[in-house]
Design a protein around this nucleic acid. Structure first.
Lengths: 193, 193, 193, 193
DNA sequence: ATTTAACCGAGACGGTACGTCTTGTCTTATA
DNA sequence: TATAAGACAAGACGTACCGTCTCGGTTAAAT
């Protein structure tokens, strides 16, 4: 990619970066203030101080805005620094994941999007394409692979790693406690060695 | 509770069982035909050939109707007959669960409700109260407990059992294949023995 | 007519006469306050304290509302009491007509409708069907007919009677003065005797 | 004013005559194709292949464009060559006027403008200032004045002459037939001799 | 057998978000 | 400086659904 070079100067007024930022921030604010269901395109435009047409020009649905607003944050919040032994490595990741899904604005946005994906196939495709959890999970699994010869192929390894944490977050909207997460990490290593 | 005994025959016209059935069936039909998002209280009433007030009199939201429409089916579809050895017992359950979540109308309804629960705390509470998955999971776990001394306490055991299958269904809307499910069952037994 | 007998009681909540009156009065007010061009369906609904759907349910355009609001008034304001001699009869009518077109709210509404009719054939048809000026003109002409054997057939007689007054109102938005109106009446009688 | 002499060559790019012509022609076309109400500044710019700002730079409203587009045509189409006797002179003029108002693009534009003038005082002032009908009417009246000692002062004479034709065109959007026009001419001469 | 009360359908009510359209202004690169 | 292109904030458009209300009519238990 080399957008700055390829970008030929198009005719007409260029897109306002200020308006783009205002919309993304408005979505973040509204998700926290009123929740996903009560968030409307009209409300987003008003909160952002932006015309409604400007929102519709660049995003078709609130899900599209939300996914753009949270992907970067997700990647950053789930990048845990490597530990020396596999158990601590897994535990650090599972802790970050559990906190992300239950406390972080980006994680709450992810849950909302995954919820909307159950209602709307278009949102499902967006979420699968963006896939905010998989990269970080894959990195952890790659790190522990030398110590886990029984590690299954995808998608099972990732599902076994994040599935229990994600499901609990979706059903209970609460984090699993640290002892439980450690127990889960140990169980995975037992199964995978 | 003992509704059938306490229920003193009130004055006035009794509730129409016919209207109740029509609404529940309309919800099932509409979920398949147009999806959860496009399903409206107005549409449900029209499809059921019922006044809108009649719907609102008995259910506050479409989620309430949907949960009433699917809970019984869920319990039935996830009740697998016991197998003699733990691996086959787990595999039978995981297969039923995976099919339920991706193919069964009741399972699709459950996913829709779990999705809505991410947007609306009231729906979350409804889903947690009804809890269509946990009883069947608990029964399987109880059966294999003698052979799995390392079985963790709740909620981890259930989360490890159903989490990977549920997460995959929610993200991909596709079942895990049989080989993967068997691999998962074997992994669980390895971790839990 | 016998609406009260013919009117079969339809199912459902009956139309609210209160809402109907509120809309018609809001239109009258707004025409005076902001003018026809700045009058919007949204504004009418808000001024009337009525839902927008309620307006659209009964009227397709603001022109339809306006015509319903002014037809009755027009008929009443243009009914002048007969005079004994033709000249005074004509003069009384021309004076009423000139004042109606330039001062009366109903007359201003009529001018607005006739203006809109130049832009929209549907409005033209509405105005022609309602035809607020013709009945009163016809009554005056019928009264003076015995004294005016040279009275032309329709539509010329009416056009000669009201055309000069109407045209002046449309172009100048001012009434013709009394002397001019008398001169016009005398001219008509000279031509028609 | 003497634009052609005083106009010192201003700095910068001069106004594009091509763009001006394109706009005026687009307005004529659109009035016929879609009508006055559906004609928008945006649509005019697009039909003319011209930037929207260019339209707004030179005209404030579509009425201003329309009046510039039609005044000259009106003057030309209503200039009938003198006849020897007053009746034929009047009839020729009335026939031209009736056709102009109901068939000519410039006449349809005039009716649209007179319609808009009922909604917008600014347009009324524009129309009165341009006054496309009065000059031609005055010329005819001046020609027949020697034969009509009873010709009233303005504005009655003009109103009596054109009012019936104009009113009928505005209300019915159809021309008066030749016999009726002749009857009107005769009536005027009877009243005015 | 009548009364009574809650049910039923239909559909209008005030309200509000939808996604589209046009308004008049502005900000680009180009001529 | 004028131009074509096109993004901008604002706000009306007509439609859909929300949850409530008000009708006429039905049904079955209680009088």
């Amino acid at each position: 990619m080399n957008d700055s070079v390829d970008a030929l100067p198009r005719a007409g007024r260029p897109r306002s970066e200020q308006a783009r930022r205002a919309v993304l921030e408005a979505v973040d604010d509204l998700l926290v203030d009123v929740g996903y269901a009560a968030m409307t395109m009209k409300g987003i435009a008003e909160r952002a101080g932006v015309g409604r047409q400007t929102v519709y020009r660049w995003w078709a649905t609130k899900a599209e805005i939300l996914i753009e607003a949270c992907v970067e944050d997700a990647e950053e919040e789930l990048s845990v620094k490597p530990r020396t032994d596999p158990e601590h490595d897994l535990l650090a990741y599972l802790t970050a994941l559990s906190g992300f899904l239950t406390s972080s604005p980006a994680g709450i946005a992810y849950r909302a999007l995954l919820g909307e994906a159950q209602h709307d196939p278009a949102v499902r495709d967006l979420v699968r394409a963006a896939d905010p959890l998989a990269p970080s999970a894959r990195r952890v699994l790659d790190r522990i692979r030398p110590a886990t010869p029984g590690l299954p192929d995808e998608p099972l390894a990732t599902a076994q790693l994040i599935g229990p944490v994600l499901s609990h977050a979706l059903i209970a909207a609460e984090p699993l406690n640290t002892a439980t997460l450690r127990r889960h990490a140990v169980g995975l290593l037992t199964a995978w060695r």
